[in-house]
């Protein structure tokens, strides 16, 4: 089992460096190609259907998925979920139903998922995709703390979608609720409509806003600030951070790390969970781990009474 994990980490690392290299060359690459799939990625949200089909095409044609170790009977759930993921990626987009299961009995409230998510998506101050809510239950000496990680619920009936005045957000066929940062006008109506407070506003804050300019090569606004301008890859598109340019001024939320999923990697919160409490996969695939867990009797969803039909499940 340990070997499995090692191998897995290696493959993941390789994949990550590949992605980074890809990103560096992407600008050049874009200019060269200037059409086809990549151009269609740049189309505004009005042509959202075209956008998603182009993306679907791109992902199903992607052959270089991480190489997984041979299947063993009691393998790490991470490996199993990556196997599930690869199976799902071979299906057309519309047949996938990305879902998350969070086992609250295993969550220790370490906030690893929150932090790794912020690192993966380079979240600026004031934006959070996956906070962990803490609730104290009981009276001393019979007291315990309950931790509830709260990603975007990727609802089947998302109340945030209908309220958008410019159709900048929609539910993809694979159940992920997408935001087109180029289309969003930043009115924040969707924030008010979400019953889970899953959407936050990127007001344009930076961690180094009030930092002084340092002289050395590492400290100071100029040098350390490089981290703040590294592009993010929300919804599979490259977004370098520039003042006043999207996603600044937009509403942002968790997207199940769709840019990772489509490269065969699990969402960052899932792989960083120290207790293996977060599970991810295709609920339409009855062989997948998440489908198995969703079928358990102790499963629940947040605010079921709202009729939003979340795709995030909790095990109690």
């Amino acid at each position: 089992m340990e070997e499995n994990t090692k191998e897995l980490i290696q493959t993941e690392e390789k994949n990550l460096t590949a992605t980074q290299e890809n990103n560096i060359h992407r600008n050049v690459f874009l200019k060269k190609i200037g059409g086809g799939i990549f151009a269609s990625l740049l189309l505004p949200g009005v042509l959202s259907n075209k956008f998603t089909t182009a993306l679907a095409k791109a992902t199903t044609e992607l052959k270089e998925l991480p190489k997984l170790p041979k299947q063993t009977p009691n393998e790490d759930v991470i490996v199993r979920m990556m196997r599930d993921l690869q199976r799902a990626l071979k299906k057309p987009l519309a047949e996938r139903k990305w879902s998350m299961v969070i086992d609250l009995r295993k969550c220790v409230g370490c906030d690893s998922c929150t932090i790794s998510c912020a690192a993966e998506n380079k979240l600026p101050p004031g934006v959070v995709y996956r906070p962990v809510l803490t609730e104290e239950v009981g009276v001393y000496p019979n007291v315990s703390e309950q931790f509830i990680p709260r990603p975007c619920m990727q609802c089947n009936k998302p109340p945030c979608v209908d309220v958008c005045p410019v159709s900048a957000t929609w539910r993809r066929e694979d159940s992920i609720v997408e935001i087109d940062y180029d289309q969003c006008i930043g009115c924040r109506y969707c924030i008010t409509a979400c019953p889970y407070s899953a959407r936050t506003f990127d007001a344009g804050h930076d961690y180094l806003d009030n930092a002084t300019d340092g002289a050395t090569s590492l400290t100071g606004k100029e040098k350390a600030g490089k981290y703040e301008v590294i592009p993010i890859f929300d919804y599979g598109k490259e977004w370098p951070r520039k003042e006043g340019v999207s996603p600044e001024g937009n509403v942002r939320k968790c997207h199940f790390c769709v840019h990772r999923i489509e490269k065969g990697l699990l969402p960052e919160c899932t792989v960083s969970c120290i207790g293996r409490a977060t599970f991810f996969g295709d609920a339409n695939d009855h062989k997948s781990l998440v489908a198995e867990l969703i079928g358990k009797p102790n499963v629940m969803r947040l605010k079921e009474e709202m009729g939003t039909e979340p795709n995030v499940y909790y095990l109690m």
């Binding site: 101050p125 004031g126 906070p131 609730e135 889970y196």
Partner: peptide, 18 residues
Amino acid sequence: LAIPELKGLRDAYTGPGL
């Protein structure tokens, strides 16, 4: 808007606007 939609959200994460 000033009533947290979920219990525990108030202290879950801090930052400007949160």
